[in-house]
């Protein structure tokens, strides 16, 4: 069964690039272009993993992560791995991302290797 990844990224060209990389690596990718659509898509498709940006209009990535974790706790479904990929690059940003409930925090610009290592380490578990 192909692993399904929900990608939440509002920057058009970057989202396209990340989607293409993940597809090339054999994943099934659903791309949401802002946090609000991302959260709706999460409920719709129950993905195996989420890769999300933080700075997005309408709903930011941290809010998405918190909403997902709250929903999992409420309904008792097992938590899914979440990777944050953000331009917010300070140690404080990193800590805030993990505190919100992300498993891995990657800062932009990361390499394809960095991203794939993160994805594979979380899928393997």
């Amino acid at each position: 069964m192909t692993t399904r990844i929900l990608l939440i990224e509002d920057t058009e060209d970057l989202g396209e690039n990340i989607r293409d990389v993940l597809r090339m690596e054999g994943f099934n990718v659903v791309w949401a272009r802002n946090g609000k659509i991302g959260l709706d898509t999460y409920h719709e498709i129950t993905p195996d993993l989420i890769v999300t940006d933080i700075i997005m209009p309408l709903m930011n990535g941290l809010e998405v992560v918190r909403e997902v974790r709250a929903f999992e706790k409420q309904t008792g479904v097992s938590p899914i791995p979440i990777i944050i990929l953000s331009a917010k690059a300070t140690p404080e940003d990193h800590a805030e991302g993990l505190a919100a409930g992300a498993n891995i925090y990657l800062k932009k610009p990361c390499s394809i290797d960095n991203l794939m290592n993160a994805v594979r380490s979380l899928i393997a578990n």
């Binding site: 920057t11 060209d13 970057l14 690039n17 990340i18 331009a87 932009k108 610009p109 990361c110 390499s111």
Partner: peptide, 12 residues
């Protein structure tokens, strides 16, 4: 902030 996103696009 603002350079990391385009740099990210270029790197990918």
């Amino acid at each position: 902030h603002e350079f990391r996103t385009p740099l990210s696009t270029i790197r990918f």
